[in-house]
Design a binder for these strands. Structure first.
Length: 116
DNA sequence: GGATTGACCGGAA
DNA sequence: GTTCCGGCCAATC
């Protein structure tokens, strides 16, 4: 697994795995860097972020947020635009949106993802 | 292999 | 709510 639509070879299986999980996040949902790292069982919030910074362009990176629902550094506006069109639950509503409402958007890796 | 960077996390003031 | 600090890990030069 972890190699379905990407064939440009990644520097490590970790990177490939991270992108794979992010790609599994359904629209209108979101996950935190720490959650992805924990779902994989390795890496870490920092490790996930590092991979995303280089290869996140190939996956719906906006569905990945920081702990608490914050947006990726330097892409706040980009992410916000995607949440509005996907209908992702935002704190205070789509007009106040500055954070994702993880209490409603948090995705724990649906059935078939991770170790099960 | 060493040093530096970066889309992070949690705690405290 | 904002700011400062240490810890954590992977990619890059």
């Amino acid at each position: 697994m972890a190699t379905a639509s990407r064939d440009f070879g990644l520097p490590s299986e970790f990177a490939d795995d991270v992108l794979d999980v992010v790609d599994q996040i359904p629209p209108g949902r979101a996950m935190t860097y720490g959650d992805i790292a924990e779902l994989l069982g390795r890496g870490g919030a920092r490790g996930v972020g590092s991979v995303m910074a280089r290869y996140g362009s190939d996956v719906p990176w906006w569905r990945v947020v920081r702990a608490g629902g914050g947006f990726p550094q330097g892409l706040e506006d980009e992410a916000l635009a995607h949440y509005r069109e996907e209908g992702t639950p935002l704190v205070g509503g789509p007009l106040a949106g500055r954070r994702v409402d993880l209490s409603a958007a948090r995705w724990a890796g649906g059935p078939g993802v991770g170790a099960g």
